[in-house]
C-alpha cells in the first residue's frame, strides 16, 4: 500500500468517493433534493435571459403594480416591469456575484492559509494576524464600509464579500495543511526529491480540497445574503439591473400597501438559492466527513 504512487492513490480515492456519493445520495433524499435544486438555480442563471417572457427592463405605464395573473405570473412592479422575468434574469447576476466573491476568497484565503500552515514561522504569524484583524470586525459593517468607500458597484460588492470571507478559508487551509505536513506520504514525497513548494502544491493542498468545498458551498449562500443586505441599505447593484436583494429591498416598501408580490417572489428566489447552497454544503459535508454522521 505504501508503495502505490500518489496518482493511483488519488484514483482510488476518487472511485471510493463516487461510490460513497451514490450511496449517500440514495440514503439521503434531502441532499438529492439539494442537488436538483442547485441544478435548477444554475439552469435559471444560464438560460434565464432566454426563457424570460418579457424584457426585464421594459417599463409599461399601463401595467404598473398589477397582481400576479396568467399574463404576469409574478405580477408587475411600480414601473410595470414583469417581476417573473426580472426574478429569472436576476439569477445570473446573483450567482455571478456569489461565485466570483467566493472564488476570489477561496484562492487568496487558501493560498495564504496553506503557506502559513506549511511553512509556519513568520508567514504563519502574519497570516494569523491578518485573519484575526478581519475577523475582529463586525463583518457586515466592514463590507458596508468597503462598498461605501470604494464606490457603489457590482465589482466592489464582490471584493468586499470576498475580503470578509478570506479568513474562513485561510484558517481552514492552515489547519488542514498543518495536520498533514508531517504525514507519512509527505515524508515519502520529500525523500523522493520534491521541493517544498511542490510538496505543498501537489501533495498536500489537493487533500485539503474536500473540506474546503463544503465551506465554498456554504459561503455561496452567505455571499448572496450579504449582497442582498448591502442592497437593502442602498449600497449595491445599480438600477435598472435586476438583482434579488435590491428587488426585495424595493418591494419591502410595497408590502404594507398590499403589493406583496414585488418582495415575496424575489425573496423566495433568494431563499431558494441560498437554501440549495446550504443543503448542498451539508450534503457535501456528509460525503467528505463521514464520521460526522454516526
Amino acid at each position: 500500500m505504501s508503495q502505490s504512487s500518489p496518482s493511483v492513490q488519488t484514483g482510488l480515492r476518487i472511485t471510493r468517493a463516487l461510490g460513497h456519493a451514490r450511496y449517500a445520495l440514495a440514503a439521503n433524499p434531502v441532499t438529492l433534493c439539494a442537488v436538483l435544486l442547485f441544478m435548477f438555480v444554475l439552469g435559471c442563471a444560464i438560460f434565464g435571459p432566454m426563457l424570460a417572457p418579457y424584457d426585464p427592463l421594459q417599463t409599461n405605464g399601463a401595467m404598473a403594480l398589477k397582481a400576479p395573473s396568467w399574463q404576469h405570473w409574478f405580477g408587475t412592479d411600480q414601473l410595470g416591469r414583469d417581476v417573473f422575468s426580472r426574478v429569472l434574469v436576476a439569477a445570473r447576476l446573483d450567482l455571478t456575484i456569489a461565485f466570483s466573491a467566493v472564488i476570489i476568497a477561496f484562492i487568496i484565503g487558501s493560498t495564504m492559509g496553506a503557506v502559513a500552515g506549511f511553512f509556519g514561522g513568520w508567514s504563519d504569524l502574519a497570516v494569523s494576524r491578518v485573519c484575526d484583524t478581519i475577523m475582529a470586525f463586525p463583518l457586515f459593517v466592514l463590507a458596508m464600509g468597503i462598498v461605501a468607500a470604494a464606490g457603489n458597484s457590482v465589482i466592489n460588492i464582490v471584493y468586499a464579500t470576498a475580503l470578509i470571507n478570506i479568513p474562513f478559508y485561510a484558517r481552514m487551509a492552515r489547519a488542514e495543511v498543518n495536520v498533514r505536513r508531517n504525514a507519512g506520504f509527505v515524508h515519502a514525497a520529500r525523500l523522493a526529491g520534491n521541493s517544498e513548494w511542490r510538496l505543498l502544491a501537489v501533495h498536500i493542498f489537493p487533500n485539503t480540497l474536500p473540506p474546503m468545498m463544503v465551506q465554498v458551498s456554504l459561503n455561496l449562500g452567505w455571499a448572496i445574503l450579504n449582497a442582498a443586505g448591502l442592497s437593502f441599505i442602498g449600497l449595491g447593484v445599480r438600477p435598472p439591473d435586476a438583482e434579488w436583494g435590491i428587488m426585495v429591498a424595493e418591494g419591502a416598501n410595497f408590502i404594507v400597501s398590499g403589493e406583496w408580490w414585488m418582495a415575496l417572489f424575489p425573496g423566495a428566489a433568494l431563499m431558494l438559492a441560498v437554501f440549495s447552497f446550504n443543503l448542498l454544503g451539508d450534503g457535501l459535508r456528509d460525503l467528505v466527513d463521514p464520521q460526522k454522521r454516526t
Binding site: Q58, T59, Q78, L79, G234, P239, P240, E250, N253
Partner: peptide
C-alpha cells in the same frame, strides 16, 4: 429614492 428612482428609470428609457 422614493421619487428619484422611478423618475430616473423612466428618463433613462
Amino acid at each position: 429614492a422614493d421619487w428619484g428612482e422611478s423618475t430616473a428609470l423612466i428618463i433613462q428609457e
